[in-house]
Amino acid sequence: MSAARKLLPWVALLVVVTGALVVGAAGRPDSSAAGRTRRIASELRCPVCQGLSVADSPSSTARAMVADIRRRVDAGESDAAIRQAYVNTYSEQILLQPKGSGFGALVWALPVAVLVLSVGGLGLAFRRWRRRPVLSPTEADRRLVEQALADAHEET
């Protein structure tokens, strides 16, 4: 079998997977008033709860906020304007995910930095492993083994 022949089934597999994912991604975000309300509410923190979003919280405060968001959506305000109105009232603490600017940006940037560093580090390690011949024990290694054997002997 030629190399191309061998690759063919994998290419077909990739095509099927990509196709399925594209179809899966085709669902547009729900732009109905209810959908927008729910999305905005899920990004705001319920001020009287412990870590729940306004959308999830069963508290009366959160339900009043959902009603208010719905009123604003129906009045034609944009998503960003509604969010900003809540930030103005409650400070940035109302947002369940920090903005991508200022100190809050670190919470987004640090994981990316760690990812890049660790993948880079792993790549370097593989390169070093590939270059380095399989080692034979050095004099220091032999001393270590002798020492360990002597230790073990002593213990028993």
């Binding site: 870590g51 947002l95 995910q97 200022g102």
Partner: peptide
């Protein structure tokens, strides 16, 4: 954020999910 910058922030479900 509060200790270093005196800034009050929340990190919740949308962040963790994403």
């Amino acid at each position: 954020a509060e200790a270093l910058r005196g800034q009050q922030l929340s990190v919740g479900e949308p962040y963790f999910d994403r």
